[in-house]
Write a protein that binds this DNA or RNA. Sequence first.
DNA 1: CACTGGTTATAACACTCGTGATAGTGTATC
DNA 2: GATACACTATCACGAGTGTTATAACCAGTG
Lengths: 192, 192
Amino acid sequence: MTKQGTPSRERIVSGTADLISRRGLNAASIRALAKHANAPLGSTYHYFPDGKRQVATEAVEYAGARVAHLLGERLEAGPVEGLRAFLELWRDIVVKSDFRAGCSVLAVSVEEPTGDDVPPELAAAAAAFEEWERLLTESLREHGADPEAAAELATLIVASVEGAVAMCRAKRSAEPLDRVARRLEALTAAAG
Amino acid sequence: MTKQGTPSRERIVSGTADLISRRGLNAASIRALAKHANAPLGSTYHYFPDGKRQVATEAVEYAGARVAHLLGERLEAGPVEGLRAFLELWRDIVVKSDFRAGCSVLAVSVEEPTGDDVPPELAAAAAAFEEWERLLTESLREHGADPEAAAELATLIVASVEGAVAMCRAKRSAEPLDRVARRLEALTAAAG
DNA sequence: CACTGGTTATAACACTCGTGATAGTGTATC
DNA sequence: GATACACTATCACGAGTGTTATAACCAGTG
């Protein structure tokens, strides 16, 4: 009952996902997180006693689940339709933020694990990638694609879209995503 | 006087590229940069009077040029050979660092421009991406690929490899890169 | 020898960081 | 009204940030 009753908590999580997607994890301070979510700093440690790491982990899980939900829904209309929704989702985020926001899952993936073992937020990122790939793979297979080719194409889709999001931000242009989109649509249509 | 341009300076640049590829730009402090390059902190500001931003920009330019050089060389043996070199390069970096290092150009691309205009290190990242794409596009066209399809495939290659590098780090596995490699090789061979 | 100029060492500035401790607020139930 | 408890405000700590200033080194040249 923590989540539904307290909008603050959810605002912090979704706001954190957004801020991480913009600045990266290490550059997003807890104070900035709270301000970005219109939540008091004290609440952060109240809802997330384990501190920044916990907020970050939940934010990555949240972002991953959100994308997975939309992707899963749209894949019901076929792989090509799902791919289009996936592409459109990221294009909107990048363009509407004036190339300032991106993917929080990706942002977390490009920062070194400080210690010896895998930090939880990185594990959450890996899980998000795997879930997206799984959804795409299954949809492709259901529509007649070769099982192994389906898995490879799914990975290619996720990797190229994530990479294209970063390229769009660097170039301040949506062209990389658009180019990747055309190529991926052809591949997906041919595989289905 | 061992080399052109003092060795300290060059060590700082290449060391910075490596550290940025691991931690991201914002999380790589100037003190850590100096220590990582076995250079004194004072030298950093001596060689780079404009501070961290200048070091970062030169590091991204350096990393971009290094990859471009190797890619250009290997593309002389054809697009497929160039692609293989590109893939192998990143796979080596990721695996040999135990999934701790990645691509500094990508790392810089996922951090928000603080002010209103484009910071120089981000412009350097965009330039690096464009150079890699240009090399691939030209090689593909020279080997008989349709001009527009060549440009799209080049973008797809760069984007998916960059994305796969990040996915490999999150999953602590080289599989994403390997899967992407198989798919891209088939596409490149078919286009040439 | 002194002197010069490129390099490095040290200290300090004004911040921000993540995180705790403590006290205060509000509201809801008894 | 009073008591309990979820939430928030405030302050403090030690450490780390980018950067500048100033002093010390240490080569080579006159």
